[in-house]
């Protein structure tokens, strides 16, 4: 009885296989991922280039969204590429719009393929951005045929940015840094790499960008510290430094870039030999000048003149 069942099952399978094969041979090539992609996926199938099909895992592969195009929406009709491929033999001509590092398509044309849908929102100013002016292609940073685009993940984004920005790669690993290495921030937390603000910042100025997390520095204060109000970058390097609080230079040198008063603000750098409260001895050690001038970003105190205007209270 058991043998009969197995033989019957095998026979059913064979018949089904034969029937399916016949039907497949008779029908037109089937789309694999996108509507109308058979034009491409008859060659670029799971055996030829499986990674190409992974676009199906992405927003670009969500065909229920009627705005989603097909392969040729980005790569062009590519008639010569197809004709060459059909002839066989030699390596076919590249698609009309190709995105690989050695692709002959001009960057302007590659980006045009993306901008035909993505020109709006925060990318309105792309053409006047430094990245555009330096021939950076969208595909230089973004991976389209994958569910996990490194450039759009906070934990992996720096891999993309540091391909070019070597100075920032060196700085981000210094003892004082924003939590970028740890994945709690990314370059795009502060930068709109598709925009044309100064330094491609997310907001109109350095300070406006910093205030989005450090709003306590925004003021205005009763006693404003002028460089603080103008540009945080005068004293801080946000990418990382060897000095606490991302300072570019160490007190008293940092403060003495602007301050040349008589008395203790002009002190030479040095370390105290023992416990002291002398202000001439404390400009370099501990918090340096900030040991006393503790509200250096601005103060709202109205307590006497010697302290209020000098950010001590």
């Amino acid at each position: 009885m058991k043998v009969v069942r197995i033989v019957a099952a095998m026979a059913t399978c064979m018949l089904a296989a034969l029937a399916t094969s016949a039907a497949t041979a008779a029908s037109a090539p089937k789309d694999l991922v996108l509507k109308g992609d058979a034009k491409c996926t008859t060659c670029h199938d799971e055996g030829d280039s499986p990674r190409v099909l992974e676009i199906g895992k992405t927003r670009h592969g969500t065909i229920a969204d009627r705005r989603v195009g097909t392969c040729t929406s980005c790569h062009g009709e590519s008639d010569k590429h197809i004709a060459d491929a059909e002839k066989g033999g030699k390596k076919p001509a590249p698609p009309d719009v190709a995105f690989g590092p050695k692709a002959p398509t001009p960057v302007n044309a590659r980006n045009g393929a993306c901008l035909s849908c993505h020109q709006g929102g925060t990318r309105i100013h792309w053409q006047s951005s430094t990245h555009a002016a330096r021939d950076v292609a969208c595909s230089s940073c973004h991976q389209i045929h994958t569910a996990h685009d490194k450039a759009r993940d906070r934990y992996t984004q720096t891999e993309t940015c540091f391909k070019c920005h070597k100075e920032q790669r060196a700085q981000i690993n210094r003892p004082s840094h924003h939590p970028v290495v740890e994945g709690k921030m990314s370059c795009s937390s502060c930068h709109n790499v598709h925009g044309d603000n100064p330094k491609q910042l997310a907001r109109a100025s350095v300070n406006e960008t910093c205030f989005s997390c450090h709003m306590e520095k925004r003021g205005p204060f009763v006693h404003n510290h002028q460089p603080v109000q103008e540009d945080c970058g005068i004293c801080h390097n946000p990418h990382g430094t060897t000095i606490a609080n991302l300072l570019k230079s160490r007190p008293p040198f940092l403060c003495q870039e602007c301050h040349s008063h008589t008395s203790h603000p002009s002190q030479a750098s040095g370390l105290p030999t023992a416990r002291t409260t002398g202000t001439t001895a404390l400009g370099s050690v501990a918090r340096g000048c900030l040991n006393c001038h503790t509200n250096i970003h601005g103060s709202n105190s109205t307590q006497n003149s010697a302290t209020a205007g000098r950010f001590r209270r």
Binding site: A9, E54, I55
Partner: peptide, 25 residues
């Protein structure tokens, strides 16, 4: 057994499984 053998003999079924793996989140 039927399903296994069917996929062996029907490449379309095997292909569908591979494609689903490549294209579905």
């Amino acid at each position: 057994l039927t399903a296994g053998v069917a996929s062996m003999f029907d490449p379309a079924l095997a292909q569908d499984a591979t494609i689903a793996e490549l294209t579905k989140p």
